[in-house]
Design a protein around this nucleic acid. Structure first.
Length: 922
RNA sequence: GCCCGGAUGGCGGAAUUGGUAGACGCGCCAGACUCAAAAUCUGGUUUUCGCAAGGAAGUGCAGGUUCGAUUCCUGUUCCGGGCACCA
């Protein structure tokens, strides 16, 4: 019998399901290991071969750890709230709940065919009320908390209110608004509403106002990627920035802990760097510049700078177009220009503003006064200064800052040089090591050393302050959408009142039509009856996609618990995720949010660890290999790729399923679309050859390869191994269906070690030879090392080498092959289980023990050393590993080939690195 | 624009700590088996010069460090990802 993968895989998938082979419990005496894949969004497009890449890697690792004796938690579920389902509902009139269920069923069917070891009894869906009840509950935990900066942790808000009643807020600077300062007696005199307003400025989940992409024509808020070139992607309507009431998470309070936590986790350096850049901690100063024209009121412009040492190089100020003083600073003469500029800026997204190379700006007409020189400094507006960062105003030092320099050049603003020869007048020099000149009391100092002195001096004069700043902003936590978690909040007299636990979950009400609500509200705003609740008005925004995904790793530990989000005994046992696999696209957003939620839950005593993911591995993407055909313009004639330059052609994507390698199946092509039914072809060598291009795997390029088809043709084991064999998990790589044959041949070759086509079952009980043991253990050692370091592609190749060598040796011995099978199980579980049983083993190979490598078979006594002369390898000499420098020199210099190369030259030095190489320097 | 990656044969990739560049697989070429095909097996396959033996060049590009660099350093080009309401 040949290798019948279809029957084998079906049989074992059913058997494993019946036996609950993948169900685990936290009541166990084995050490735990938690392997998690990033929460998938069940998209309607279904899986293509790129999606399971990370799942296969994590599946292999889970199975491997199980063979190593660990109790492995490996769950899967769905991040099933999200914009696409809502969009689909709007366009097709199908309720998101229905399309989501369909998508999930689809998704699950595709996953099942690949033979994953997920414990499906733990499946969670963020859109299930049983799940989002606890998302809402955690939100209320955050709402009911504030961040105590002295303790550096979250605490119940009641503790803060008690502190206010006792001592006012003198010890607890208001993070939302630093200008809020009050005493205990003032606190007592405040109205309830005012008190709640102040507490809101402290809460970890709070309500404030923020700018969104507003599309008047659609009556809705748009995501950045729904905005293209300043207009909506749907319909091309104008989009402007608009301020709306929004919920936020005060993640900025956790900035330092998020930064420090990076030292305790095993993420790639680039990942850590991306996160710390996002947090963007910087040290500098806030400086107040008096305005020239005070208009009777003392008024100053507050700027933030990381380079106070350059204070004497300030040639102008730049404020963000949204800065609160814009109106006040605009002179009558400049009014028209400023208004025009604001209109222009308002039409641009933040991303466009940051990416813009073009220099834009406008003079406000006002000046401020340099605190030391008394000079007049013009105040400009420009979009390169963002309102959300620092104070929304900068002091521009063109000789030291590239953007300031370009701005000054563009608007002909004279540049002051404070760094002497270090500034060449051609470009800015951001050095900190220059000696200052033209800098008053700083003259002669090295810039680096002047920073502290400037700040001290400014603080002494009361016009500046040392300030740590973060680029990270508080995370917007509300969406004007339907398909998300409703907030468990009711508004009464402008005060947000949390609903009690027994009213959770606040279920998402049924709606037949998802059109935007009034005044920028989401669809829920249309439900007048639902809105009225408990003597107030419900919050009608919903939570964003990352709400449910910020804590799902906890719910997997205890998915059915109706009393709490996750029982402490479960979270204490499973603890941190030991291995988290997902794409780099989540580098900042999702990972920072879930890290913050974990820290807050830890602070409040709900879990026992404050970092969710111990180790993170980023999988790469699999690209599509598109096929192109060339239609002669204005005709229905297609010309083969090699001849296309002889014609004027248009390039069209053709479905990769209609192409074998590069050769088009012209008959299938004619049937593909009605337009092509009468297509004619200009062939080369009797064939139509397509063009090729590597690009994203996407329906629109017709280059999507469905894993179902591959599994049907080659089996899940082949598919799994091939995905790994393609290259390093972390790397992006193109898909090439042709290459899969090699892996499939490998599995057939493995099968033939057990069963001969004609002779039948040929397994022998004989004792293996040393050579056979050596082949086995060398292969297993490599496979084990490679698996440990996530190098699955080389692990697969080491299995190939092992099977090739065992075949060459004619080894059909049970004692060798059963060890090989166990080690291969994580990669190809079905075939291994089948052969394991055919060998007569009781029980499942899933529960076998990973073989111990017997190193005594691997000891080498000599090595074929490469011998190089001046770094160029000339020959190879077999020398004992015990040889010392002298012996090696003697052997090498006697060698015929070496002698030939040394003719007429003297050997200066012999470099001998044991077990590596020998190099003669002549 | 800012941040993070990447670049090695015809193709995917290997080389784990600075030590034989191209493992393994695809593709291609030749051969065996076969009426034939498929499957399978055997050999070859970086480029270039050479009948061969053998030589030269070679890891995006330009330099540097070193006995020795795909690996470390400096500069540079191109490609991919992220940039806060896609998830």
């Amino acid at each position: 019998m040949e290798y019948q993968f279809r029957e084998i895989e079906k049989k074992w998938q059913n058997r494993w399901k019946e036996n609950g082979a993948y169900q685990v419990s936290h009541v166990s005496s084995s050490p735990k290991f938690y392997v998690l894949d990033m929460f998938p969004y069940p998209s309607g497009a279904g899986l293509h071969v790129g999606h399971p890449l990370g799942y296969i890697a994590s599946d292999i690792f889970s199975r491997y750890k199980r063979l190593k004796g660990f109790n492995v938690l490996h769950p899967m579920g769905y991040d099933s709230f999200g914009l696409p389902a809502e969009q689909y509902a709007i366009e097709h009139g199908i309720h998101p709940a229905i399309s989501t269920d369909q998508n999930i069923a689809n998704f699950r069917g595709q996953l099942d065919k690949i033979g994953f070891c997920f414990d499906w009894s733990r499946e969670v869906r963020t859109s299930d009320a049983g799940y989002y009840k606890w998302t809402q509950w955690i939100f209320l935990q955050l709402f009911d908390s504030w961040f105590n900066r002295h303790e550096r942790k979250a605490e119940p808000i009641t503790k803060l209110a008690a502190a206010f009643a006792a001592t006012g807020n003198a010890h607890h600077e208001c993070p939302g608004d630093r200008s809020i300062i009050f005493s205990a007696s003032e606190w007592h005199e405040m109205s309830h509403e005012r008190q709640q307003g102040i507490l809101m400025e402290y809460r970890l989940a709070y309500c404030g106002h923020g700018e969104v992409n507003w599309c008047e024509a659609l009556g809705t808020v748009l995501a950045n990627d729904e905005v293209v070139n300043g207009v909506s992607e749907r319909g091309g309507h104008p989009v402007v920035r608009k301020k709306l009431r929004q919920w936020y998470l005060r993640i900025t309070e956790y900035a330092d802990r998020l930064l420090e936590g990076l030292n305790t986790v095993d993420f790639s350096d680039s990942m850590k760097e991306m996160q710390s850049n996002w947090i963007g901690k910087s040290f500098g100063a806030e400086i107040d510049f008096d305005l020239e024209n005070q208009d009777g009121l003392p008024l100053s412009l507050k700027v933030y700078t990381t380079r106070p040492d350059t204070l004497f190089g300030v040639d102008f100020m730049v404020i963000a177009p949204e800065h609160e003083l814009v109106g006040r600073l605009t002179s009558d003469g400049q009014k028209k220009d400023v208004e025009e500029y604001l209109h222009y800026v308002n039409s641009r997204s933040e991303r466009e503003r940051m990416a813009e190379k073009k220099i834009t700006g406008v003079f406000s007409g006002s000046y401020c006064i340099h605190p030391f020189t008394g000079g007049r400094i013009p105040i400009w507006l420009s979009e390169y200064v963002l309102a959300g960062y620092g104070t929304g105003a900068i002091m521009a030092v063109p000789c030291g800052d590239e953007r300031d320099f370009k701005f000054a050049r563009h608007f002909n603003i004279p540049i002051t040089n404070i760094i002497g020869e270090q500034y060449d007048g051609e470009e800015a020099n951001p050095t900190k090591d220059a000696i200052l000149s033209n800098s008053g009391f700083l003259n002669g100092m090295v810039m680096r050393d002047a920073i502290g002195l400037v700040i001290d001096t400014l603080e002494g004069k009361g016009i500046g302050k040392r300030r740590v700043n973060y680029k990270m902003r508080d995370a917007a936590f509300s969406r004007q959408r339907y398909w998300g978690e409703p907030f468990p909040i009711v508004w009464k007299n402008g005060v947000a009142v949390p609903l009690p636990l027994d009213e959770l979950p606040v279920t998402l009400p049924e709606m037949s039509e998802l059109k935007p609500g009034p005044e920028g509200e989401g669809p829920l705003g249309n439900l007048q009856d639902w809105k009225q609740h408990g003597g107030g008005t419900r919050e009608v925004n919903t939570m964003p996609g990352y709400a449910g995904s910020s804590w799902y790793f906890l719910r997997y530990m205890d998915p059915d618990n109706g009393k709490t989000f996750c029982d402490r005994s479960a979270s204490d046992y499973w603890g941190q995720v030991d291995l988290y696999i997902g794409g780099t696209e989540h580098a900042v957003g999702h990972l920072l949010y879930s890290r913050m939620w974990t820290k807050a839950l830890y602070d409040l005593g709900h879990i026992g660890f404050d970092e969710p993911y111990r180790r993170l591995v980023n999988q790469g993407k699999i690209g599509g290999d598109s096929r192109l055909v060339y239609r002669i313009r204005g005709t229905n004639t297609f010309v083969s790729a090699g001849l296309k330059d002889q014609y004027e052609t248009d390039e069209l994507h053709v479905d990769v399923g209609l192409v074998n390698g590069f050769e088009l199946d012209t008959k299938a092509f004619a049937k593909w679309k009605p337009d092509f039914a009468n297509a004619e072809f200009v062939l080369e060598k009797e064939k139509y050859i397509c063009g090729g291009r590597l690009e994203k795997m996407s329906k629109r390029y017709f280059n999507v390869v469905n894993p179902d088809d591959i599994v049907e043709r080659y089996g899940a084991d082949t598919f799994r191994m091939y995905e790994m064999f393609l290259g390093p998990v972390e790397q992006d790589k193109p898909w090439d269906t042709k290459g899969i044959e090699g892996v499939h041949r490998f599995l057939r070759k493995l099968w033939r070690l057990f069963e001969h086509e004609e002779k039948g079952w040929i397994l022998k009980k004989d004792d293996p030879t040393d050579a056979e043991w050596k082949v086995l253990y060398r292969g297993l050692r490599k496979a084990e090392e490679d698996t440990e370091r996530f190098s699955f592609n080389t692990a697969v190749s080491s299995f190939m080498i092992t099977v090739n060598e065992l075949s060459d040796l004619g080894c059909h011995k049970q004692r060798i092959l059963e060890k090989l099978l166990i080690a291969l199980t994580p990669f190809a579980p079905h075939i291994c289980e089948e052969l394991w049983h055919k060998m007569g083993n009781p029980g499942s190979i899933l529960n076998a023990v990973f073989p111990t490598i017997e190193t005594r078979y691997l000891v080498e006594s000599s090595k074929a050393y490469p011998v190089a002369i001046n770094g160029k390898t000339r020959t190879e000499i077999n020398i004992s590993l015990d040889a010392d420098q002298k012996q090696v020199e003697a052997i090498v210099l006697e060698d015929e080939v070496v002698k030939k190369w040394l003719e007429g030259k003297t050997v200066k030095k012999v470099i001998y690195v044991r077990n590596k190489m020998i190099n003669l320097v002549v």
